[in-house]
Design a protein around this nucleic acid. Structure first.
Length: 576
DNA sequence: GCCGTTTTCGGCCCGACTGTTTTCAGTCG
């Protein structure tokens, strides 16, 4: 049983309890634990073997949840969850995805109108049944009908890279507003999450209404969801919701901290503030004295954190994972930056499925300030991409040799290959060919659905080959589109550590694989991470910044990322 | 359900906005 499945079980319990109107703090306990477990760097299965005492050492897991984890791991199911599901049809949980419908209203619909599915709900709304319920009205009914379409669109979060494009446009648009003093995009966007559910904009403006008018024009074919004195929300036609908040100057830092989140980070932060007799909200930090509150600060994030005795956390770390522990020990990592990257070790050319020639890729990489690149076209098994056999590969390497001579010592092109790990576990090119390469990345493209043992064996086997340097996109997931392979990532870590090999963080915004939690786990094992573009065009080289964001979320420093080194230093690292 | 501790049980972050009310509950972030 994986951590993800344990977390899913607890999340389902939370949803069902919420629906039943259980104690909200009990519900929260399940949700918190689910989140912690999903992010936990080691399989809980391993800890179970050490007894439930070991489990309760994890923040947010007490005796009760520890027992439940033991049961789940041991039997594969949880009597409590089975029982809950027998009481409430699972389909009602879909109702909670409609914006504006929370557990209370959903339960009222279920209890009073026997609504079990989205289809039931639609019929009831159209028949005017819903408006008759206490607490509901005509508007709520309309809202639900609109929300049904959104519920389908909404589950889809957009890639950070897509959100970034909207942010750039909106920043330009709003930035032109007269009397605008501050403008910042907060929320999961600022934290650099791989996907973004909605956008949050924070501003200080002389005339909030003028800014809101301007914001309203951004709606296009979408709609304005609401507008108050300080807050306005719109939904673009694409389904993306954008919230704008205008705050006074003396609150900007507090609001920036607050709306950047994450929620979990803020809960901990407020708890620490409370211990110091302080209250933190989006308006500032306040000293609480009897019935009075005295404003302490709030102009900048630095002031706000300093008041609570904390450093300014890079937004990427604000997930309530280990950042507070690091801060307490004075060991907040100095996170890797885009400018630290010296080389890019995974890219394609027109020789296979790339859109640019060898020369064009080199030129583009030099323009971007890189000192070396590895050309890693596909091997022959990837026939769709016109993959290379030994002969064509060696021919390409001759070209590289020639070009390297012309370039001199200021730039190096490495003779590389993205060698397929075949379904059988064998590599797609013979050892004598791989031995001639400067850099070998291996990856799985076929047989992705093989059972856990088999696919793990393939990847572990590749790591054991002395000519292999790195595994590319080690879990194969495509965010929101394709699940990861069933690979036992712990076994991959163990093999990478044993053979002193590197693992890739693929910077393609749809991949970002390894993910942040896995990168952090790899770091604890002492495994080096390579951030690569996997570029199939010259523009493709620009995705490195998305990989950097993910690495920062994992808490990686310059030293943790192998390709921040020069190629000669890298050679020592990979022992060639 | 967890946590800390006043070691037995109370507290658990907090404010804006909306719709349905007539003073507030529910939802959201």
């Amino acid at each position: 049983m994986t951590n993800a499945s344990i977390a899913d079980a607890f999340d389902q319990i939370a949803d069902l309890l919420d629906f039943q109107g259980a104690n909200p703090f009990r519900v929260r306990a399940y949700r918190n634990s689910a989140r912690t477990i999903r992010d936990y760097p080691e399989p809980l299965e391993n800890l179970v073997a050490e007894g439930s005492k070991r489990l309760t050492q994890i923040e947010g897991i007490g005796d009760d949840l520890a027992k439940k984890i033991v049961t789940l791991v041991g039997t594969g199911e949880l009597p409590q969850l089975v029982e809950l599901k027998s009481q409430i049809p699972e389909s009602v949980l879909a109702l909670l995805r409609i914006p504006g419908l929370g557990p209370k209203k959903a339960k009222a619909l279920y209890d009073q109108l026997a609504i079990k599915t989205l289809a039931d709900l639609k019929v009831a709304c159209e028949a005017g049944q819903v408006r008759k319920l206490k607490g509901f009205g005509e508007k709520t009914e309309q809202l639900i009908l609109q929300g049904m379409e959104i519920a389908e669109k909404a589950g889809q979060r957009m890639y950070w890279a897509e959100a970034d494009q909207i942010v750039q446009t909106l920043r330009r648009d709003l930035g032109a507003c007269r009397g605008l003093k501050q403008l910042e995009f907060t929320g999961s966007y600022r934290r650099g999450k791989e996907t973004v559910g909605d956008l949050d904009v924070l501003a200080v403006a002389e005339s909030p209404s003028e800014l809101m008018d301007r914001f309203g024009q951004f709606v296009g074919q979408g709609q304005v969801l609401g507008r108050g004195e300080t807050k306005m929300s719109i939904r673009l036609q694409s389904g993306l919701q954008i919230d704008l908040r205008v705050v006074p100057e003396e609150s900007f830092g507090a609001a920036l901290q607050y709306f950047t989140g994450s929620k979990e980070h803020n809960v901990t932060m407020r708890g620490l503030a409370k211990d110091k007799g302080l209250k933190v909200n989006e308006y500032g930090v306040f000293r609480v004295k009897k019935d009075q509150e005295e404003y302490v600060c709030g102009r900048t994030e630095k002031e706000v954190y300093a008041a609570v005795g904390l450093p300014v956390f890079p937004p990427e770390l604000r997930e309530n994972r280990r950042e507070f522990e690091w801060a307490e020990d004075g060991k907040l990592p100095e996170l890797v930056e885009l400018a630290d990257l010296r080389g890019d070790l995974h890219m394609h050319t027109t020789e296979t499925d790339g859109g640019a020639t060898l020369e064009e890729m080199v030129e583009a990489a030099r323009k971007r300030g890189l000192a070396y690149i590895a050309i890693t076209d596909h091997s022959k098994r990837v026939s769709m991409a016109n993959g290379l056999n030994a002969e064509r590969l060696r021919a390409q390497w001759k070209q590289i040799d020639a070009l390297n001579k012309k370039l001199g010592k200021h730039f190096s092109i490495l003779k590389g290959i993205e060698c397929d790990i075949l379904e059988s576990g064998e590599l797609d090119l013979p050892d004598d060919v791989l031995a001639e390469a400067d850099w070998v990345v291996c990856s799985v493209h076929y047989g992705q659905k093989q059972p856990r043992e088999k696919i793990t064996e393939r990847i572990v086997g590749a790591l054991a080959n002395p000519h292999v340097d790195c595994i590319a996109h080690p879990t194969g997931r495509l965010i929101g589109r394709r699940d990861p392979y069933e690979v036992d990532i712990e076994a991959v870590f163990a093999a990478a550590k044993k053979h002193r090999k590197l693992l890739e963080l693929n910077a393609n915004p749809m991949r970002l694989d390894l993910n942040d939690v896995m990168c952090a786990a790899a770091k604890t094992h002492g495994i080096g991470i390579v951030i690569s573009s996997d570029a199939h065009s010259t523009e493709g080289l620009d995705v490195l910044r998305y990989g950097i964001l993910q690495a920062r979320r994992a808490g990686l420093t310059k030293a943790d990322v192998a390709n921040t080194r020069s190629w000669s230093e890298m050679k020592i690292l990979i022992g060639s």
